[in-house]
Amino acid sequence: MRDYELKENRKLTERAGHFLRKGGWKYIGIIVALIAFGVALFVNATGFRYRRDVTRLVLEDRLDILDSARWTVSVSEQMLRETEQSPEPPHNRPYLVISIADRRLWYKQGGAVLLTTRVATGSGKTLVKEGGASVWRFETPRGRLAVRSKEDKPLWVPPDWYYVEQARKRKLGLVHLERGQSLSAADGSIIEVSGTDVIREYPDGRQKILKASDSHDIIVDGKVLVPPLGTSQRRFEGVLGTHRLNFGNGYAMHGTNRPETVGRAVSHGCVRLLNNDIARLYELVQVGTPVYIY
């Protein structure tokens, strides 16, 4: 039995040796190499396929995000178009600008300056009437005003502060004359209103119309007379120059009989220009034109 097994083993060994000698090892080697190469290729290809599939999923996600971003772009473009197409507030009308700090006026329309010139503005001073009954602050008002009316050859009706100021300058007192009232002067004459004039009536019956201007005040017994409103003695010619554009509330833009003051902070709140400039503005500026003072 043992001999038989030995014989069979030897036979097998001889057969295998013969098979290998005849080139079997080479073909087995080729098969093994091809299997190994195939396995390596399979692993590699599977890895690439996995990466491809993952990349495809990520790409799909990114395409969704891109769609969302594109939608945002289209919505924002539409918003921009609608915004640009919506009507703008009107901003092409002409307007006046006055800078108090620069003491300069501009007449503008759109982005263009149609006229610019120097002006005099409020002095910023304060005047207090004796006893503190009235306080005036001579400032040009800041804000938005408008041209309410225009005047050619305007007359100036001096406000009360003018007489207070004049009396203080001359170191004189102040006396008010009302309509229907008469003032007795030391020389025996009587000062009263007759029609639209302030007159002086002497004891002998003579009457004299009193004259007043910005350079000539009516003095009665050492006091500056304040004529009543509506009288010709309270209307001065030439003080406001050739033209006036009224802003309301007693404020205006006007010419002057003192051109040397233009460019300075000397007015009582009005805007003072050279007569040539106010004449041009009188022609150019329409009633209702906004005036921005800053």
């Binding site: 891109l66 971003a69 945002t72 772009v73 924002s76 473009e77 918003m79 921009l80």
Partner: peptide, 16 residues
């Protein structure tokens, strides 16, 4: 896609 997405986001931000 990424470049387009960034471009789109930038365009949207610019529009906004």
């Amino acid at each position: 896609t990424e470049v387009r997405r960034i471009d789109a986001i930038e365009a949207a931000e610019n529009n906004i």
